[in-house]
Design a binder for these strands. Sequence first.
DNA 1: ACCGCCGGGTGCC
DNA 2: ACCGCCGGGTGCC
Length: 829
Amino acid sequence: MSWMFKRDPVWKYLQTVQYGAHGNFSRLSYPTFFPRFEFQDVIPPDDFVTNDEDLDSVLFGTLRGHVVGLRYYTGVVNNNEMVALQREPNNPYDKNAIKVNNVNGNQVGHIKKDLAAALASIMDSKLAQVEGVVPFGANNAFTMPLHMAFWGKEENRKAVLDHLKKHGFKLLPPPKTLGFSLESGWGSGRAGPSYSMPVHAAVQMTTEQLKTEFDKLFEDLKEDDKTQEMEPAEAVETPLLPHQKQALAWMVSRENSKELPPFWEQRSDLYYNTITNFSEKDRPENVHGGILADDMGLECNVNSESVELEGNITSEKADGLIKEGSRCSTEPSISDVQEKNKYPMSEFSSPRPKRRKTVDKYIESSDSEEFETNELPQKTKGKLKNVKSEAKNRGKGSSKLKEDPEFMCALTSPTTTTKKKMLKKGASAVEDSKKTDLEEKPRTTLIICPLSVLSNWIDQFGQHIKSDVHLNFYVYYGPDRIRDPTLLSKQDIVLTTYNILTHDYGTKGDSPLHSIRWLRVILDEGHAIRNPNAQQTKAVLDLEAERRWVLTGSDTPEELRKKLVRKMKLILSSGSDEECAICLDSLTVPVITHCAHVFCKPCICQVIQNEQPNAKCPLCRNNIDGSNLLECPPEELASITEKKTSMEWTSSSKINALMHALIDLRTKNPNIKSLVVSQFTTFLSLIETPLKASGFVFTRLDGSMSQKKRVESIQCFQNTEAGSPTIMLLSLKAGGVGLNLSAASRVFLMDPAWNPAAEDQCFDRCHRLGQKQEVIITKFIVKDSVEENMLKIQNTKRELAAGAFGTKKTNANEMKQAKIDEIKTLIDL
DNA sequence: ACCGCCGGGTGCC
DNA sequence: ACCGCCGGGTGCC
């Protein structure tokens, strides 16, 4: 039963941000609201997703109570908004006190004391986790209703129920069914309201909304006047190319943006967050900046320097440009990256068409203790000229880096695309508002990059900036790095690496990186910091579970080896784009570690060598050892890669053939309509791209579409007016028998079906009453392949089927023989 | 009346 | 709070 009630991770996050990840209140003081760099975006708390407690938590039931004392607090909520319940054991009036906070961390009120008396010990003992939502009455002046859901381990259910009973409370059982309509909200009386819907209604955006928001974000980019250029500060010696000047103008304009952050809008006298339903009187702080991404790291670097100079050095230009000392930056989320691919994200990207990845680059960037143990320069301060030569001496191959085809730097990007991020930002706002007035205006830019790029930055500054310009900067790296926020915040620039960032975050003492208010944060090579947890925001759980599976039990070495190899095979063969987390390229000579992570052999060996004697897995930080790496047996590897490439090759050549046929057809008669049929919707999706590129108007029909969409699609296709679609991408199994696609007179079958009847049905759909033209069917069959043999089978089957209506009946023996022939044909005997 | 009832004062924990 | 609760005023019908 309980499988239905998956806890929304937002809850976990709300708990985390409000109580501290480990129940430790000092965790609250992490970098605050928008203005600060949110390190959590790079390194979410480990226990956010993969917590054992969450995995086996079940919903015990729900309870209705009240929030009281509203008039004493400023925190407000909206109907259906979630709230956090926080124990307040030191409350002088009641040791059982439980605060109710909104997502922003502002107190709304308290749980009424009789209920608090019952809840306090449950919360303290962690027998259950209690989640709250204010279903309605959010505008009440004195008290408001509170809907609570109790989650915990099955074995604790009874204790919780008994305890509540002792205090006179009884949980409503979880609803029997989960309604999927929004109407089944709080009002529906029977069998208890649908628990999850109001919550989701409150915090989750529909795909449409999300798209709209994204469109808005990217409209801003597009609207930006591309012709606007900006001259760099005088200190920049390297002349900027036009697109770099555009980028500079854009970055400066982004830094001075006056717009509301994404997902916020003004409603009368309140500012309203469309994701959390949270609203507040105070205007949320501006989000400045954006993501500047291109294929050419060098150019981006120069630009960042230019902005740096605009902000920090040349007063005649910088004056008034950098007004606000508050910036934040986040790693582009996965969805950002996806969006980036969808939209021409950067107006300044280099025309270089293909992304090229190099293995070498990331071998070097396997940021590690190597740097520390070698005592490479930890502190580099003063004239850049000196720094430059020092960097060169290190021989870190900066020239190679300059050829680096990939570069991404993020300037204060508003990538608040997920609700958890919104919550997080919200929760820290209070802290921020407290501090803002007390702190001095920040002046320091933090640059975070992979280790291999560190020297590049130093080098770049030296090359492009006049040597008589003094930029104070500090390389925050190495065992002796000075963790003094005062020192750091006096610099113009602090350079550090992602690993240091991660490392510091985990340490007990407050990391200066996390407490300093930065002028801006630049994430360099941001794509390199792929958080293993963030990849496939469910897959994480699977992976964790699998890894445990691999490590579980007392296997013999041979058993372990077999398991690991099997796991590696699984990873390699499943992967649409399985990449090595070190080089980010496809896996070459894949090896698996004992912690069940797969890397390229050269990549991981380099890491191990760099980090010896205590090398750790780049993904999970478990100890790894060169002698423990398992290679994929060559015969396995061959079969896997062969399968993959032949598949790809087949697909692409079929698409080529199809495109030729379609273009040919269009030339001969542009009015002819075609069905392109496949049983694989993913394959249909692949076809969309070249269709668009060749200017075809097309429509699509597959099983995933709503009835309404299907009707629209069909009507659209059947329409014969000029400009109507000439092609329909049709999923073989979509639609009922009655489907009429008689506008089509050509059918392209992209994959042979085992059952020719399905294809015939497809043919029938266009060969209907009203069909005036001859219907021509084209099948794409790969020569000398299984497909070709399947074609033979189909013909045999058709003959058999025809025979069934003929004179003699097919008996069991004949059927059997037919089957055998079928298989023989297939395997070419 | 060691009650009930009324109506004013009052209001988180 | 257009409530509940408290405690003072009050007391047949």
